[in-house]
């Protein structure tokens, strides 16, 4: 255990009163999003917007510098077509941050590093802080941390809060995304509570999942988190970003997420500064749909580079 946090932070934890979440109601609202019909110009705009929000991700032990360089090249120029935007970021383990940073030099694409003993978070706080500092030192613009789900599920909310606050401090200028790993939190009430704790503790973004646990991102979980962001904004005026990650592989599903953002938080969140998709396969499906919208026909998947 590390030192206790200052009294002011303790006070903040006490003021977090998460409202009840009704599962049936959340799922009904989501059903409304999925029934929106997005066509023509509206669809094209959504596809490009979604592409610009992708965090192209590779998080495997077998990742190589070569693979990361390929991913970066894809990130900067997803397709030969000139009017396709670059993606928002490339997300890698900290040991490959330098490679990515180097490959992305001169572009607007950010480098995100997972840290804090990703994906399980099963280590001491000091090691997590050290790892975060190391990743930032390697040049990461963004840190994707995981919360200690074990402590959260035991009801040790102050522990979770303190840890996030300390990682935030270790991030310095880097943006902090807090992964709740909603697939391990069991209830929407827990998702809401974890979101509130993360935002109050200093998260710049809240993120659903590591992608290593099923279920990863879902629309209902994302809606609960978007509503938490909305309440936090109402109370404080601070805008927190949202990143669903894992399991969003199709353009159709990505557009449904954008509809949820549009109808829950509105215009200010419909950009890569405030909303991201953590995904790898999604980019190619978005590209395929963009080309289809332009030409009227689907092209073979072999025409899209798999990096």
């Amino acid at each position: 255990m590390t030192t206790a946090s200052p009294a002011s932070i303790r006070e903040a934890i006490g003021s977090i009163q998460s409202p009840a979440i009704d599962q049936v109601g959340v799922e009904e609202r989501v059903a409304r999003f999925t029934k929106r019909s997005i066509k023509k110009d509206s669809k094209m705009l959504a596809l490009k917007l979604a592409l610009s929000m992708v965090d192209l991700t590779t998080l495997e032990a077998k990742d190589t510098p070569g693979k990361v360089r390929q991913l970066c090249s894809k990130a900067m120029r997803p397709h030969d077509s000139a009017d396709v935007p670059s993606v928002a970021a490339v997300c890698v383990y900290a040991n490959l941050v330098k490679v990515a940073k180097d490959a992305l030099k001169g572009s607007n694409v950010k480098v995100a590093a997972v840290a804090t003993a990703f994906p399980s978070g099963m280590t001491t706080r000091n090691i997590k802080i050290e790892e975060t500092k190391w990743a930032v030192g390697e040049g990461a613009d963004e840190i994707d941390m995981v919360i200690s789900r074990g402590h959260f599920l035991r009801g040790e909310y102050a522990y979770v809060f303190d840890e996030i606050a300390e990682i935030k401090e270790a991030c310095g200028q880097a943006h902090l995304k807090v992964i709740l790993e909603t697939g391990e939190l069991n209830t929407y009430d827990n998702v809401r509570k974890a979101s509130d704790i993360a935002m109050h503790a200093g998260a710049d973004f809240i993120k659903t999942s590591t992608g290593k646990i099923q279920p990863a991102a879902t629309l209902p979980v994302t809606l609960v988190m978007l509503e938490a962001i909305r309440d936090y904004y109402y109370q404080t005026g601070k805008m927190i970003g949202m990143k669903p990650a894992g399991g969003i592989a199709t353009a159709k599903l990505a557009i449904q997420y954008l509809i949820a953002v549009r109808e829950t938080l509105g215009a200010a969140w419909l950009n890569p500064d405030m909303f991201r998709f953590g995904a790898s396969a999604l980019a190619n499906d978005l590209l395929m749909q963009i080309i289809k919208q332009k030409t009227g026909v689907y092209q073979s998947i072999d025409y899209f580079s798999k990096d």
Binding site: S42, A267, L270
Partner: peptide, 23 residues
């Protein structure tokens, strides 16, 4: 438990992204 809400902060739902007609 009065829920705090700051009325000077407003969400903007008038987005550039409109839903095209889908009759």
């Amino acid at each position: 438990m009065k829920k705090e809400t700051n009325n000077n902060i407003a969400l903007n739902f008038n987005t550039d992204w409109k839903y095209a007609p889908a009759p």
